[in-house]
Simulated assay, not measured.
Amino acid sequence: MHVGRERTVYRPCDDRAPRQQPTPARPAAPALWASALALESAGDCPAAARTARHAAAELRATAGHHDAPGALICDGFAELADGTVERALQALEAGITWAERESTPFWLATALALSGRAELIRSRLPRAATRLWHAHALAARLDSDDPYLPPRTVLAADLAEALARTGSARRAAEVLAEARRNTARGTDQPALDRAAATVRTTQGSPRAAAGELRRSLATGRQSPLERGRGHAALGWMERRARRKAAARNAFEEALVHFTAAGCRPWLLRTRVDLADLDGSTRPLSAVERAVLARVTEGASNREIARTVHLSVKAVEANLTRLYRRYAVTSRLELAQVLRNPRADAATET
């Protein structure tokens, strides 16, 4: 008997249909999305990005068009994991628009949470706080056990950080207290510890906050990504405490962990923080001291320009340099730092 490929000829009068080969099962987009979230939580950002892009392709195939909200949001997640913040925000903004138009609260909450995190990376804190607050409120109305939502504790930690750094430390503390009540000790708890230390820093105790965060990091319970975020936050706290050597060490440690996690946006952000730190060791100029003095008095940019004999644009340029020097993003944060008696002390190297 000859065993091999048989040739079948179908004649026009033959009404029997040819046997169809079974189509390989396509991976379900929800499972791919849940896998992407799990990979990011585990600290493998490149794999999370690849899986999210696969989920986006599946969602587009199902929807039959490119602008499916879930696909756009998966694109944004992928960029936020292993791409650029700018492309992430572009995809997420489009995703938010479509999710609102199609009334899909799950994808809307997810897009707002990711967009808020992207704004945190860019240090656009008021916008981050707004986006994260809306995501937090929307997520609270969804199933708390839904494995397809980003981790609630990470969302709460991001929101608390944005609130604290925009002058709402009390509200930030309330968000963290609620998150701790609803979360057992587990893999996401370090994110809450990081956010709590951020809140304490904005309340005027950066050294104590840095000590608390160091103890949390010493437990080793964090993924590479969370360890990177923890050390980056520690660098910011040490900088607020005017301990530049400790800040540099923390930022450099953050680089190690972000590199291990393969998370490009946080890696680039930390490199900027290190460059800013190295540029802040020079003494304050007479003009900068004058601008600081007027800021503490509550003067506007026009009032400062008039009394210090500068243009308004020159005042804005000086304030930008001072914000970077003191690791702040607003006048309120700058005033808090200046109330620290060590704020004008000699810089440590």
Rank of each mutant, 00 (worst) to 15 (best):
R242G: 06
R243G: 03
K244T: 08
A246I: 02
A246M: 09
R248T: 03
N249M: 05
N249L: 14
A250Q: 01
A250I: 09
A250P: 01
A250L: 10
A250G: 09
F251K: 00
E252F: 10
E253N: 15
A254N: 09
A254G: 10
A254F: 05
L255T: 01
V256R: 06
V256F: 13
V256A: 13
H257T: 00
H257C: 03
F258D: 00
T259F: 07
T259I: 05
T259W: 08
T259N: 09
A261G: 04
A261S: 14
A261F: 10
G262F: 07
R264I: 11
P265V: 06
P265C: 02
W266E: 12
L267A: 04
L267I: 07
L268R: 13
L268M: 10
R269T: 12
R269F: 07
T270P: 06
R271D: 04
R271Q: 06
R271Y: 12
R271L: 10
D273W: 07
A275K: 07
A275P: 02
A275I: 05
D276K: 11
D276R: 15
L277H: 05
L277I: 11
L277W: 03
D278V: 03
S280K: 03
T281Y: 03
T281D: 12
P283M: 06
P283L: 08
V287D: 09
E288A: 06
R289M: 03
A290I: 04
A290Y: 01
A290V: 08
A290E: 07
V291D: 07
R294K: 13
V295N: 00
V295I: 15
E297K: 08
E297Y: 12
G298R: 05
G298A: 07
G298H: 12
G298M: 11
S300V: 08
N301F: 14
